[in-house]
Design a protein around this nucleic acid. Structure first.
Lengths: 153, 153
DNA sequence: CCTCGTTTGTTGACTAGGAAACTAGATCAT
DNA sequence: ATGATCTAGTTTCCTAGTCAACAAACGAGG
């Protein structure tokens, strides 16, 4: 005879609901980006370089919480699409610097529209007050745990 | 001369903060599970079968929003670890049914403790009132978009 | 100098999943 | 009965990451 004690259900955890919603927000965005042949990780890199203008791969890796190996491959893909350029550092023979191409720079604003739309689709029905409360909750966790990387997946 | 209009920052989106927090909650949990040689997806399957007792792979796939191919491989891994058993359906030659082994069943409660701890680590500092408000927000989105799958990644 | 340790980016082996083709078995319509 | 269609699970190929080993270049101490 087996008696299994009942456990608190998966749904008892806030993490469960967060992950559920977050996954759908991300996948929704990923689907929109896919029309433009861009992944979420690629979008984050593009958006980052739009502001930064030029950045070393290793800095980018820290920023996004990814390995340098992943950045190498990401950069490969983006240069293959002619959205990004590698330049060797003039003084340091090891280092490179990544920057958007003209096309890359031109693409970012249109993708930003998709990002705005996606966020609105999921959070737009909340009042501004509710939205800022949610943001407070989330930022409280971010602060408390010292989370700094830009989420990519 | 290039004039690039400033865009709303990544951080303007609630989706950004959700993904940041959610990723860390998941990865935190994944790290705890890794000590027991279990992945998050495996945990979800184990937990699901703990309640269900037996389930067809295809039902599981629907439940978790994964492909049947992924379930095949997941089940392979779990049977290799002797946590799960496949049984052929007596009447239907195509069908199987998945169930936990004794060891699998024994493992789930200890993993459930990890899940509880992880959730507490990230959300425990909120008051019960705040927590239920967060849950309301999240469930509102879930309802509005009809999200039903158990999030795995 | 020159050597030792460090940093930079790349590579190869591996993992977990998706998409779609595939096999085998069931069901259904004649 | 039997051919067509559908369903269940598997397999193959692909993608996008990690991890760890690596080569090249730098920098600091003797």
């Amino acid at each position: 005879m087996r008696v299994s004690q009942p456990l608190s259900p998966l749904t008892a955890h806030l993490g469960y609901w967060m992950r559920l919603v977050s996954n759908h927000v991300s996948h929704g965005f990923a689907r929109k980006l896919a029309d433009r042949d861009v992944t979420v990780a690629e979008w984050v890199v593009l958006r980052q370089l739009y502001d930064e203008d030029a950045l070393a791969p290793s800095r980018l890796a820290e920023r996004l919480g990814m390995t340098r190996g992943a950045i190498t491959k990401l950069a490969d893909r983006l240069t293959a699409k002619a959205l990004l350029m590698r330049t060797d550092h003039p003084d340091d023979g090891r280092a490179q610097t990544l920057a958007l191409t003209k096309q890359g720079r031109r693409l970012v604003p249109t993708l930003a529209v998709l990002a705005d739309e996606n966020d609105a689709a999921f959070f737009g029905h909340f009042t501004p007050d509710e939205r800022s409360r949610i943001e407070q909750f989330l930022k409280a966790i971010v602060d408390r745990h010292g989370l700094t990387d830009v989420p990519v997946s």
